[in-house]
Amino acid sequence: MTVFKLITSDYKKYKKYGGHFFAIVFFTQGFWAIFQYRIANGIYRKVHIPLVRPVLLLLCLFWQKMIEVTTGISIPASVQIGHSFYIGHFGGIILNGKAVIGNNCNISQGVTIGVSGLENRRGVPIIGNNVYIGANAIVAGKITIADNVLIGACSLINTDVATNSVMLGVPAIMISDKGAEGYI
């Protein structure tokens, strides 16, 4: 998808949750962060002109830091995020630069998606499609979160998660196989 189509898909998801243009664009910090990310990621992936690329990426880094200070949301340009991404509430959201997040995912405030593990188990999560990550959850390590997963608030995910799982606790355990339907 093009950068414009990705931004449009994100905007439509915010609109689906009841926002209108003025509120989404001017007052929704999650949308600001994802908008900035889409522009920076587009430059990161598509611009390969030797002198232009580093200058544009540096400008995007300053813009990212401004968004990070303003909103508490850190999304590096190198993260891979699919279409229709939604940040429910702003603040305390940290995504590792090597994270991979699928299509149609929602995350809440306080979420960390980061690096963890030792030796060959050290790495960053790969998150599937239609995944909901609740407030203050941590997803860390060289793990795979399958499609249609719901991760409950304040949970720690450090192992692979099967399709349609509902995960809860520290460390999280599967409490249901009803998945994220209804949450996204």
Rank of each mutant, 00 (worst) to 15 (best):
G117M: 03
V52Y: 12
L56Q: 03
I101S: 00
G19I: 05
I175P: 04
T28E: 09
G114Q: 01
K16M: 04
V3G: 02
E68H: 15
Y37Q: 00
G72P: 06
T28W: 00
L6C: 12
T70R: 13
E119L: 11
N96T: 11
T144N: 10
D10P: 04
G19L: 15
K15G: 02
I39Q: 00
D177V: 12
G19H: 10
T71N: 09
P125S: 07
C154W: 14
D160K: 02
S9P: 04
P50V: 04
T8H: 00
A172T: 12
A162I: 12
G92W: 00
G110W: 01
K98R: 14
K5Q: 13
V55P: 07
G92D: 01
V149R: 00
L168A: 12
D10S: 06
N136K: 06
A99Q: 09
F90W: 08
V79I: 12
K15P: 07
V25D: 07
G169S: 12
Q36T: 11
K5V: 05
Y17S: 13
S78R: 09
A172P: 10
I7P: 03
Y44H: 09
V161S: 03
K46I: 08
R53G: 04
V25E: 14
S116C: 05
G30Y: 10
P76F: 06
L95M: 13
G169W: 05
S9G: 07
N120K: 15
K16Q: 05
W63G: 02
I73V: 14
L57C: 05
V79T: 14
I126M: 04
T163H: 08
L58A: 14
H89W: 02
G134L: 06
L58D: 09
G42S: 11
Y86R: 10
W63D: 04
S108P: 05
P54T: 13
I93Q: 06
A172Y: 03
V55M: 10
V139W: 02
L58N: 13
Y86V: 00
I173H: 14
Q109Y: 02
F35T: 05
L58F: 13
Y44L: 03
I113S: 03
P76I: 13
Q36N: 14
L58P: 06
R45W: 04
L51M: 04
G92R: 02
T112H: 02
N158T: 09
Y183E: 03
L58K: 11
G97S: 07
T2H: 05
I126H: 07
P50M: 04
G134P: 11
I39T: 02
I143D: 04
T112K: 11
N164D: 15
K46E: 12
I49F: 11
V47P: 04
A180K: 00
F21A: 15
Y14G: 08
S165D: 08
A99K: 10
G117A: 02
A77F: 15
G97H: 08
F85S: 07
Y44S: 05
N164S: 11
K65D: 15
V139S: 04
K16F: 14
I67V: 15
Y11K: 03
M1C: 03
V161N: 05
N103F: 03
I101H: 01
I133R: 00
L56N: 05
I145E: 09
S78I: 12
I81G: 00
V166L: 01
V25C: 15
F85T: 12
V3I: 13
M66L: 15
A146I: 08
I39C: 00
